[in-house]
Amino acid sequence: MSTQSIGIAAGLAQANDRFHAARRRQLMTLVVVVLVISVLPLLVKDVYLQNIMVLTLMYTALSQSWNILGGYCGQISLGHAIYFGIGAYTSTLLFTKFGVSPWFGMAAGGGIAALVALVLGYPFFRLKGHYFTIATIVVAEAALVLFLSWPYAGGALGIQLPAAADNWANLQFGRNKLPFIYTALALATITWLVTWKIEDSRWGYWWRAVKDNPEAAESLGVVIFNSKMAAAALSAFFVAVGGSFYAQFVAYIDPDSVLNFHFSLLFALPAVLGGIGTLWGPALGAIILIPLTEFTRSYAGGSGQGIDLIIYGALIMLIALWKPEGLIGFFVRQPKPLPASADEGAHS
């Protein structure tokens, strides 16, 4: 790589400048977007629409977290529901059994999920492609089966969050959705910033290397393995935090409503539709997908004829086929694979 770099030293410096200018622009965009979203719920007072905002921001954060491992690192997991469930159950059990604040529960859930991700990652990262993906599905399904038969965690009956005083310490707010919107926004912003930071870090370079060329990356060996583990832990941590948030938001959890396979899909789907492995892809995907899910069910699902499913499924299919590289393709003028020399220069 070094010979190549020397050969195009001038180009590299230029590309590097452009790269950092682009990153600053990204950050500015974030500030604007966050400001707009902060004002939005003050204008839109409809509870139903506010509920959709919470879900959209939550799935933005979850998909952004999934994107760290699935998009940047190229390890497609369809079993992230296990981390979501761990987060939801950890904070809820700590709160109902020991009266521990959900904020602490959130951190604890994240920590446990990260540990589980490391334990699973050790054997799993030896698997490639679909073998890895199916291993993640299988482990999440096993967790679902086990939680259904775990009496301490409520088994199939689930756990209802007891009503506590409505305040920030308990993360309960009665009818008021605003605090949930801002919490979800904070979560989405943090995951965005983490991803943004990673893009420019050594890890970020390695992961892109792993994704683009696994064989060449093998020369990096142990380093790559460790960075994959780090990606898995980071991704799991934030998905679990999202799980704790969801438990507080819905105030009731049971295995099927936090560990079901369709959550794993819902974490991946926004990233894929929006633009996998991109900074804005998950948010873009979630902004399209979640309102679509909600509106089709609410306004076409009352007939019981499956029309909502037909519309919803067809739109997913169309987006996937129409913009295979993700909706981000509408916003980024340059096609993703940049001219080889400049691209690789910036990355190495």
């Binding site: 509870v47 139903y48 509920n51 959709i52 969801y246 938001f249 819905v250 009731y252 959890i253 049971d254 099927d256 409503s257 909600e294 069910r297 609410s298 699902g301 009352g302 007939s303 019981g304 909502d308």
Partner: peptide
């Protein structure tokens, strides 16, 4: 007025609010 909860507690709640 009919609404579909798809056996999901979160969706049931959202529909009730709506």
């Amino acid at each position: 007025v009919f609404a579909d909860h798809q056996a999901d507690p979160q969706k049931g709640r959202a529909e009730a609010e709506r």
